[in-house]
Design a protein around this nucleic acid. Structure first.
Lengths: 181, 181
DNA sequence: TGAAGATATATCGGAGCGATATATACTGCA
DNA sequence: TGCAGTATATATCGCTCCGATATATCTTCA
């Protein structure tokens, strides 16, 4: 079975209980978005494909007169999800405009280069706080893994913020030798 | 001036000396790729646009009979680059299949969930080593910023590897209470 | 009653990325 | 000398992804 990672996000999101495309999107935006996003343009077509492949099953679940389809994982879908979880992860990407700017910061005066690090730090501090506010919700669930991942995110952002602070200090400190570890 | 970040990668890469599209691509693959990639399909069209906008200047620089164009930054290009560097960074993305798998690892037995963390750790250790091998080259340049960024990458991967190790231990350690900070 | 916001599905355009096509030039070695 | 393999150089295609938006119905509450 050849599925893209987005398909597995969906399988994972419906693996505990059936959900609509809209609910999946909202859940993704609230949880995995920080390391794996998904848009409507991916979710709805993918739900159709997964349904045709027999990995999920669409169930009519209207709310009032507005029609609504929730998708439940099938036994085939479950084993597909588990097979994927057992493979070593293969996709790792990062896009960080801050690091890019820092990389080219040699064309700026030192003080302006330090400003890049200040912006980066501020952003990471804010992110860590935002994630911290999500902890109670994750703590309330019985599945411990979302909480582990969330705490990893918090720790990562705190590490990053700290690194920015240290690099800023190093940059502004009265230059002795040019560089030393 | 409305430019995408890739355009600024190019401006940055030609800001010290003129380079061909091929050289820019090779440089990106050797340096910024870990936090900002660029493909031929972006670079060559973008060089044309930047040239038309007067931010870079194409110069014929054939090697033997094979034609070749190197691009030099113009004064307009320089101030455009600096303006961009002075804006706070706005793009931050991460795609980490490992964290995604960990997020859903609750459907697996504990030992198999720990295996995800082992794969992730192994990958990060390898990455840190790869980056470490690039240090001498970065140290040889007089611009300190690529070195700072490189060392940040090393430290990040080491932090990540360490986190994976700690989480694996926590996962396998004789479960007392379900969770505690 | 009616405006605002939430739920629900669908689709479009643009950007990014990997892969590949096409040529020429250099390098090593049989 | 021949030639195979690799490096240089430019160009392009198809796919995925993402943000934005369109459309419609439902709920809330002033």
């Amino acid at each position: 079975m050849e599925l893209n990672p987005t398909a597995y996000v969906i399988l994972g999101m419906v693996s505990r209980e059936p959900r609509s495309g809209y609910e999946i999107k909202a859940l993704v935006d609230d949880t995995t978005r920080f390391f794996w996003a998904a848009s409507y343009g991916q979710i709805y077509p993918e739900l159709k494909r997964l349904s045709e492949a027999g990995l999920v099953e669409g169930i009519d679940a209207p709310r009032g007169d507005r029609k609504r389809t929730v998708y439940a994982i099938t036994t085939d879908g479950e084993s597909e999800l588990k097979d994927w979880l057992r493979q070593p992860p293969s996709t790792y990407e990062m896009r960080e405009e801050g690091l890019l700017k820092l990389f080219f910061a040699g064309v700026l005066p030192r003080e302006e280069a330090a400003e890049i690090l200040r912006s980066m730090r501020e952003h990471r501090v804010g992110l860590a706080e935002r994630l911290q506010k999500m902890e109670p919700k994750a703590l309330a669930k019985e599945d411990p893994f979302p909480l582990i991942v969330l705490r990893g995110g918090i720790e990562f952002n705190e590490w990053f913020a700290d690194w920015c602070e240290r690099m800023e200090r190093q940059l502004l400190e009265p230059a002795r030798e040019k560089r030393s570890s």
